[in-house]
């Protein structure tokens, strides 16, 4: 609910700040991404969402480069122009920033607190929650340790699938649930069955890290949908037009939610469908 309110406040602020932009030249934006339906959809949504910008056909003629994904993001920084990375890994963004790029990013995944808030809604009695992170995870070890919520988090840092399996077998017994971050290396399609089957054989639900994982069997997850990313991108563009600099990098503020109804039923969770969970999240403080 807090996320939802934040989104509305940002949108209101963007509308108020949009006035001065109308007076000048529209911002030339180039979207750097692998050609495909996602890119064209994203571009169309951007154009529809903002009249202060124009889509530039190339990076050289653009005032701003929006890079979709890690590869495009890493490639775009060589143009020496402001680059906004969308759905990029947090580690890559920090690495490029350390190299001095004029860039910001909307990280892939959602914030740990948001995911844990959703978990608390689904499993109000859960106490011990395990968090497994790897080197490329969206969540950092420090971020986990900085959690100050009701739940007792237990962090497991793993480097490989083999270690992941061992950790799961050894540690899940002591946990009430497991929360996973977005990590293409560690929690890709190859490891989903290992993680999920191991967890469910031990009767421990898994939350996160994103939509496809829920389809694969995760109980529920907040995730950054295409719309969420466009909205977050428009906020960054608006900020850039107004102040000629980006807002701080971060996760999307208003993520979407999805529930695996079968798993939610089988674990007898509080909410069994996505709509009910979304409604409950909206009213969170």
């Amino acid at each position: 609910m807090r996320v939802q309110q934040g989104c509305w406040l940002i949108l209101t602020w963007l509308l108020l700040m949009a006035g001065p932009l109308f007076a000048g030249e529209p911002l030339q934006v180039h979207v750097q991404a692998m050609e495909g339906p996602f890119k064209s959809g994203f571009v169309n949504a951007l154009q529809a969402g903002s009249s202060d910008m124009r889509i530039a056909p190339s990076a050289e003629r653009a005032d701003l480069i929006i890079a979709l994904g890690d590869d495009a993001f890493a490639d775009s920084v060589r143009h020496d122009k402001p680059v906004l990375g969308v759905f990029v890994s947090r580690s890559l963004e920090q690495k490029l920033r350390r190299k001095g790029c004029h860039c910001a990013a909307i990280w892939a995944g959602v914030a740990l607190n948001d995911q844990l808030a959703m978990l608390q809604l689904m499993m109000p009695v859960a106490v011990n929650v395990g968090v497994i992170i790897g080197n490329n995870s969206a969540w950092s070890e420090g971020g986990v340790k900085d959690y100050r919520g009701r739940l007792g988090l237990k962090l497991f840092k793993v480097d490989s699938h083999e270690e992941l399996g061992r950790v799961l077998r050894e540690e899940l017994d002591a946990l009430d649930a497991l929360v996973l971050p977005v990590d293409e290396t560690l929690f890709g399609p190859d490891s989903a069955k290992l993680v999920l089957l191991t967890s469910y054989r031990l009767r421990r639900p898994v939350f996160g890290p994103e939509q496809s994982y829920v389809h694969a069997g995760s109980a529920a997850s907040l995730f950054a949908s295409g719309g969420d990313l466009v909205s977050e991108t428009l906020i960054q563009i608006s900020s850039f037009i107004e102040r000629r600099r980006f807002r701080r990098s971060g996760f999307v503020h208003t993520p979407s939610v999805i529930v695996n109804e079968h798993v939610a039923n089988s674990f007898d969770m509080r909410f069994h469908d996505s709509e009910a969970l979304r409604s409950a999240l909206e009213v969170l403080p």
């Binding site: 069955k193 999920l196 089957l197 469910y200 054989r201 389809h215 694969a216 069997g217 995760s218 695996n260 109804e261 079968h262 798993v263 089988s266």
Partner: peptide, 12 residues
């Protein structure tokens, strides 16, 4: 199909 039923993985 244990995994598919456990996980509600209809694709699987």
């Amino acid at each position: 199909s244990e995994y598919g039923v456990l996980a509600g993985n209809y694709s699987d």
